[in-house]
Amino acid sequence: MNFDDIKIGDAITEGKHPVGKYQPHYYAGASLDFNPIHIDPEFGKMVGLGGNILHGLCTLAFAAKTCVDYAGGDPASLKRLKARFSKPVKPLETVIVAGKIIAKEGDTATAEFGASTNKGENQVLTNGIAEFRKI
C-alpha cells in the first residue's frame, strides 16, 4: 500500500502468525530474554500462568510485521507502534493481527489494531496504535 492510497476506514491486511511449540525458545535466543516464564512450562505453571508463555515483544514483532507489510514492506514507514499485552499468548496458538486506519493528517496515517488468538476470542494485544509516515 502506497501512503497516498491509504484512506481512513481502510482495514490493515490481517496478519496470521502461528506460534510453534518452540517459538518462545527461538525468540528467547534472538532477543536474549531467557526469563523462565517463556521457556520452562513447569515454571510457568508454578507461577500461575498455566505453562510457558510467548514474550509480549514477540507478539508485538508479529504486529510490526503485519503493519510494515501493509505499508509496502519498508520498516521506515512505521513511525510508532504501541500496544497493551492484555493476555498471554501460549505455544501452539495462532496470533491474528487486525486493524484499521482511523486518521490521516499530513504525512502521518494512524491505525488502531489488536491481536487475538483462538479465533478472535482471546484478545492478547489491545489498545494498539500504529502510525505510518510517508516515505
Binding site: 516464564i37 507461577v47 509480549g56 512505521l78 507502534l81 504501541k82
Partner: peptide, 15 residues
C-alpha cells in the same frame, strides 16, 4: 517470578 510485560510504546525516527 511475578513480572510480566504490560505495555510497550515505540516511536521510530530512523531505521
Amino acid at each position: 517470578m511475578m513480572l510480566v510485560h504490560g505495555e510497550q510504546d515505540f516511536e521510530f525516527f530512523e531505521v
